[in-house]
């Protein structure tokens, strides 16, 4: 198994490298000069512009910059953000926690809500509850998440006043330590739900169809014939078999969450990596942008690997032989 994992990781290396080179080159070919944004909204002298350009190594041709970038990357240095004027590693470290918290909560919501919804729908196929769940899932899947976010703010923050509209904690808060961590909770609800909404819809739909497939298997008839309780049949026989496509969807669609977080973090002023990515693109902050995309590609590669391993554990037919 370890050999398999190592092999998979080795295979991922060129992918990650490709992502870095591709993104690094592509954004530099895009129109828009970061120096014009750095020197501010007032005519800077040419001398000053030249100096800023040189200070951040932007006076070199793209291949030279790429080579330098890869070289420092190999030494574990992610570079210096010129828009934020601080090391990229530090910057991302500050913002990584909030994004992880948001993504995991959204993922948790999706699993805890999406799968039971799908099970209920499959169990009641053709009845009202199935119909409601199906329409709900379709609506959920086709709702843009930033719009959903805005709607949640209007309803739960502005109109009802139940939850805060933005940020991670109250601007006036003086709490520290555990108290500060607990304060985050009410702030997490709306963005996590907005981010997880499409995922809930996706999971409930996949669960429903996988359950229906599994329900029609002969083994289910056998289990029922043995006199097992319906609950037991559903959980031990149906859901277990239906788990394969569900796990696949969860793992392979993790990218959806990462992409969604760029929008949701902006809508809810959530200080995460997604928003940092968005800002770094508009400011042409190449080092930050490349580092985040690299991180995203690594995350996706690892998520896919874990999915495959879980898959193998669930299904004896799939083994990481060779």
């Amino acid at each position: 198994m370890w050999r398999y994992i190592l092999k998979r990781l080795a295979q991922a290396l060129p992918v990650v490298l490709g992502v870095i080179v591709f993104n690094f080159t592509l954004i530099q070919l895009a129109p828009g000069d970061p120096v014009t944004l750095l020197v501010g909204d007032y005519p800077a002298t040419e001398e000053y512009t030249r100096q800023v350009r040189a200070d951040f190594g932007l006076d070199q041709p793209v291949p030279v910059r790429l080579a330098r970038y890869l070289e420092q990357l190999a030494r574990g240095n992610l570079g210096f953000s010129f828009a934020n004027r601080m090391p990229v590693g530090e910057l991302i470290a500050q913002r990584f926690g909030p994004t992880l918290m948001l993504m995991l909560t959204a993922l948790g919501l999706a699993i805890l809500i999406g799968i039971p919804l799908g099970v209920i729908a499959a169990r009641n196929r053709g009845r009202l509850s199935d119909w409601v769940a199906q329409v709900g899932a379709l609506a959920g899947y086709s709702t843009p998440d930033f719009w959903m976010g805005q709607l949640l703010i209007l309803i739960f923050a502005v109109a009802l006043g139940w939850l805060p509209s933005q940020g991670m904690r109250s601007a006036r808060s003086v709490a520290t330590g555990m108290q500060a961590t607990l304060e985050v909770f009410p702030y997490l609800i709306l963005p996590a739900f907005a981010l997880g909404f499409r995922y809930i819809a996706l999971l409930s739909r996949i669960t429903r169809s996988a359950m229906l497939d599994a329900l029609s298997a002969d083994s289910v008839m056998g289990a029922r014939a043995k006199g097992l309780s319906e609950r037991r049949v559903l959980i031990a026989h149906v859901l277990r078999n239906a788990a394969l496509p569900i796990v696949t969807v969860i793992g392979y669609n993790l990218g959806l969450l990462i992409a969604g977080s760029a929008l949701i973090e902006t809508v809810f002023s959530w200080p995460g990596v997604g928003r940092l990515l968005f800002d770094s693109i508009s400011k042409r902050d190449y080092p930050v942008m490349t580092a985040i995309l690299m991180m995203v590609s690594i995350t996706v590669v690892i998520a896919n690997l874990i999915t495959d391993l879980v898959y193998a554990a669930l299904d004896p037919r799939v083994r990481y032989a060779r």
Binding site: A157, V158, P164, S165, Q166, A171, R172, T266, S269
Partner: peptide, 21 residues
Amino acid sequence: LVFPIIPQAANRGTALETGEA
């Protein structure tokens, strides 16, 4: 003094209305 950063334009006014800012 606290300066919260609110990137979404529509939410800045909202923060004032809800008393968050």
